[in-house]
Design a protein around this nucleic acid. Structure first.
Length: 204
DNA sequence: CGACCGATCGTCT
DNA sequence: GACGATCGGTCGA
């Protein structure tokens, strides 16, 4: 299991890159699922126009982002999808990393059942909405510590070289104006579970 | 393959 | 009352 120090790293870009290749584990109602993180996005605090905490915006929803790193921030997007974020940085520095895609490692049948997919193709955990659906994550787990055993992140001997990490602008943040251009999206090159249109994945 | 569109609801103004 | 850090289906080239 990754330790607190991993999450309180003040360089959120590094955390977003370091999360690639790590294993996201959920234990929901006795069901264990594990999946390798293959795509992330960094949301960097009160100066980042794409971040929900931009301009020091503290609301009931964003409050958890102001916590010390190592908890989850989960919210409902477009009224139908839960999106899972790792809160990073230290207290009152509301940074987070969105997990946009994972690759199933364990509990594939459980994921298939949860998502209602008829075939086990790469769409099962492609895209942030599908990630939470497959892993059984809802906003019931909002604020959960990643140092407990319901949701946590671990690592194995998977090695990722910096050459295999691609960066592009973030997806779906057009409203963030110039900050929409920041290269804060990271993914593993050539991984089939990575989300977005193909053209998005050749931007860099 | 790309463009478009509807579904759906908590949160904030 | 408006708006999303989305997804999957459909339509047309």
């Amino acid at each position: 299991m990754l330790t607190q120090a991993f999450y309180t790293n003040k360089n959120t870009i590094d955390v977003a890159k370091n999360l690639l290749g790590k294993i996201l584990v959920t234990k929901m109602e006795g069901l264990v699922t594990k999946a390798r993180i293959v795509e992330t996005e960094a949301y960097c605090g009160i100066t980042d126009k794409a971040c929900h905490a931009y301009n020091n915006k503290r609301t009931k929803r964003t409050e958890i982002m102001f916590a010390n790193g190592g908890v989850c921030y989960i919210y409902l997007c477009y009224g139908m999808h839960y999106l899972f974020n790792v809160v990073t940085n230290t207290i009152n520095n509301p940074h987070a990393v969105l997990v946009r895609a994972v690759e199933p490692l364990e509990g594939l049948e459980i994921m298939q059942k949860r998502t209602g997919k008829k075939e086990n193709d790469f769409t099962i955990t492609k895209g942030p909405g599908n990630v939470t659906k497959a892993l059984g994550i809802t906003n019931n787990q909002n604020g959960y510590s990643l140092l407990q055993n319901t949701i946590y992140i671990e690592e194995d001997d998977f090695i990722l070289s910096s050459k295999q990490i691609i960066n592009t602008p973030r997806i779906g943040v057009h409203y963030a104006k110039e900050d929409a251009l920041l290269l804060y999206r990271f993914f593993i090159k050539n991984n089939l579970f990575v989300s977005g249109k193909k053209i998005d994945n050749f931007a860099n």
